[in-house]
Structure formats: structure tokens, C-alpha cells
Simulated assay, not measured.
Amino acid sequence: MENFQFWDFRFIDFVDVFLVAILLYYIYKLVKGTVAINIFIGILVIYFVWRLTDYLNMQMLHRIFDGFMKVGIIALIVVFQPEIRKFLLMVGSTNLGGKRRIFKSFNFLKSDIETTTDIDAILSACVSMGASKTGALIVIERNNNLDFLMNTGDETDIAVSQPIIESIFFKNSPLHDGAIIIENNVVKATRVILPVSNEKTIPERFGLRHRAGIGITEKTDAIVLAVSEETGQLSYIKNGEFMMFKDMEELSEKIKKDLV
């Protein structure tokens, strides 16, 4: 009788499975909430069908899927170019020297994590600035480290509060031009210059402020709040896409969920 090998599970096998789980988690996190999630699911379905046809020895169908899998990597690079860029930036910009960031990288292991950023204070400031038609561009850092943008503006260390944000973007303030970057309830930089999106589908009514907000969310996983100087309208930008919320409580819950 052959030995039963099910329990022959080495420590390195556990590490292998664990690392694959982390990789799949971050891939899912990058494509979640975008049209790419449907493509990602479609690729998984094709992969499992490819393996199933091989297992069932369905040679003709397997050859079709096998040919697709061999050239599919080129198609994946084209289709997932923005997501691949974000993933590489996430890996390259992770600050391994900070303990907080290390544990933040593994926050999927915890179910009771809450963001430390005072989102309600930020939204209250945005509503107030919108009423006075004061333009604002607020970038909230998530997993991707945004330190590479620091030299384009002024580095600061100011705790987030409604009066602070409103005073920064006050029209006569020397700090109002450009964006601010917030991390862990701290304004870490002001007057930051963001990369501008060249996407042709952006409505003409949105100016450089909104294009900059789209640009940084296309290149990183940051989220952006933009207040229009012309209309006072508040826009929430994530993954290069606009989202409009009339209910500030709903928007607050959305942002808090995105930051976890």
C-alpha cells in the first residue's frame, strides 16, 4: 500500500502558499473597483479551463487554450499596464525602515483596523471651501509611498484639522497653490506638483487641478479630494476615475473603507 502523502507538507511549502496569497491579495487590491477586475476574473476562468482540459485530456480544446496562454502574457502587459505600474511602484516605494508601514502592508490579517486619518475633518473643510469656491487638491496616501513628490513642494508636519486645511488653501495663503499630501492624519507636504493626466476622455469642464488628481491616482493607489474653484463641487478620485457623492456621510464611509 502506497504511503499517504497528504501530510507531507514542508515549512517551505507554507511560505510558498503564504507568499502567493499575498501576491494575489495585492493584485486584487489593485484592480478592485475598476473595469480591470472583470478582465482579471476572466483570466482566472481561462486558466482553470486550460488546466481542466489538460487534466481531462481534451487535446483539441487544450491546444487552443494553450496557444492563448503562451501569447497571453503580451496581452496582459498591454491590458494591465496601469496596474502593473502601480504594483511595481508599490514594491519599489515601500519603506521597509518604518515599522508602521510594515504592519500596514499586512493589514489584511486584521479585521478591526481603522484609519487614523480624520476624514470627517477633511470633508468638513472641503464642504466649507466648496461653499466659498476655494479650490483645493488633497492627496491621501495609502500603500504607495509618495515621498518622491516631496521635493516638488514644501515638507511639513502638521496634524490634520478643519481650520488647518482651510488656512492652507485660503486664496491669500502662500501655501494654497498645488496639492497637499496627507498620511496618518498628518499633512506631510504642501504646494506639491502632481503629474497631470493626458487622458482625452476627461470632460473639458475639469481643469488642471482635476487632471492632476487623476494623474496621481493613475500612477499610484492614492486617493484624491478635489474642490473646484469655479463651481465649488467636490470630486472624489480613485484609480483615475471620478466619483460624485451628495451624501457626505456616505463619502466618509467610502474613504474610510478605502484607507483600510
Score class of each variant (00 low, 15 high):
70 K>A: 14
240 G>Y: 10
59 Q>K: 06
156 T>V: 01
257 K>S: 15
70 K>M: 14
35 V>G: 06
25 Y>S: 06
146 L>R: 02
199 E>F: 11
185 N>M: 10
248 M>D: 09
164 I>L: 09
160 V>Y: 06
103 F>Y: 06
170 F>W: 10
150 M>C: 13
185 N>K: 05
237 I>G: 05
73 I>M: 07
28 Y>Q: 11
45 V>G: 03
36 A>L: 09
156 T>A: 07
50 W>N: 10
176 H>Y: 13
187 V>A: 00
235 S>F: 06
76 L>V: 06
133 K>W: 02
130 G>A: 01
45 V>H: 07
42 G>C: 14
119 I>T: 08
130 G>P: 03
112 D>R: 08
87 F>P: 01
63 R>Y: 12
20 V>D: 05
78 V>F: 15
212 A>Q: 10
95 N>K: 15
43 I>C: 03
229 E>Q: 10
72 G>W: 11
82 P>C: 00
181 I>D: 01
188 K>L: 07
110 K>V: 07
207 G>K: 09
229 E>C: 14
240 G>Q: 11
195 P>D: 02
55 Y>S: 12
57 N>Q: 07
230 E>Y: 05
37 I>M: 12
203 P>A: 07
220 T>E: 02
74 I>T: 02
245 F>A: 02
42 G>Q: 15
118 D>V: 07
218 E>Q: 14
216 I>H: 08
93 S>D: 02
90 M>F: 09
156 T>Y: 04
40 F>A: 01
129 M>A: 08
94 T>C: 02
118 D>Q: 12
229 E>N: 13
119 I>M: 03
120 D>T: 04
45 V>D: 08
215 G>I: 12
170 F>E: 11
116 T>P: 07
174 P>F: 08
238 K>N: 01
249 E>L: 14
22 I>A: 09
11 F>Y: 09
51 R>V: 12
34 T>E: 14
71 V>T: 14
23 L>Y: 14
68 F>H: 11
253 E>Q: 04
102 I>Q: 11
250 E>L: 15
237 I>Y: 05
71 V>D: 12
63 R>S: 11
101 R>Q: 09
181 I>T: 08
84 I>M: 13
28 Y>P: 02
217 T>G: 03
242 F>A: 01
35 V>R: 11
200 K>E: 15
